[in-house]
């Protein structure tokens, strides 16, 4: 795999992260289901997955950048595994709605495991780490730049909605209302 192709794949992975963050918002706003603290932590770790690809696009692919995403994916898998275990008792309805039979934290666990496998797979291609004369512009072209700004924008929007949901105190274990909007109403 050439350096150029690796950068394109990194941009694609950013679109994947953006899709996950957008899907979480779809559940939050369309189903009126507020994310719990563990759910928020999983969202943060999905966003953290994007830092490695951003660095790969800007500075070129490096094993250390992939390692950063691997660490975020492992942390995310641990957090989502805990939430799966919290609801593993027979008769437990789980937290929130199920999508295609699985709750969001189960999908998150599958997503983090998929990320770990894909990151390990892409690390096997050594040619991407060599100098390539036909490299893309330093910022990876419009496709990659759009992906980067999309992911940054979605993370920034999460800052606002999390502040609205949790307010300035600790986030509720089972949030039902937006804390800051409750006081405004």
């Amino acid at each position: 795999m050439t350096r150029t192709r690796a950068i394109t794949l990194n941009a694609l992975s950013l679109y994947g992260v953006a899709l996950v963050l957008a899907a979480a918002y779809a559940a939050q706003f369309m189903l009126q289901e507020l994310p719990c603290p563990l759910c928020l932590l999983q969202r943060i770790l999905f966003a953290a997955l994007a830092v490695g690809p951003i660095l790969n696009i800007r500075f070129g692919p490096r094993p250390s950048h992939y390692a950063m995403s691997l660490l975020a994916a492992v942390a995310g898998a641990v957090a989502s595994t805990r939430q799966v275990l919290l609801h593993i008792m027979p008769g437990d309805a789980g937290y929130g709605s199920a999508l295609l039979g699985y709750h969001y934290y189960t999908w998150a666990l599958l997503g983090f495991i998929t990320a770990i496998v894909l990151l390990a797979a892409i690390l096997m291609f050594d040619r991407q780490f060599e100098e390539d004369k036909a490299v893309l512009p330093a910022t990876g072209g419009a496709f990659a730049q759009t992906a980067v700004w999309l992911v940054i924008a979605l993370t920034a929007i999460n800052v606002v909605t999390t502040l609205l949901e949790c307010g300035f105190g600790a986030c509720a274990d089972n949030p039902l209302v937006y804390e800051l909007l409750k006081h405004a109403a």
Partner: peptide
């Protein structure tokens, strides 16, 4: 509040990684 700070910190890290 800690989650808001973590989201903010992640967004800042992304911006620094990019710029």
């Amino acid at each position: 509040m800690e989650f808001t700070i973590l989201f903010l910190a992640t967004a800042i890290v992304m911006l620094i990684a990019w710029r």
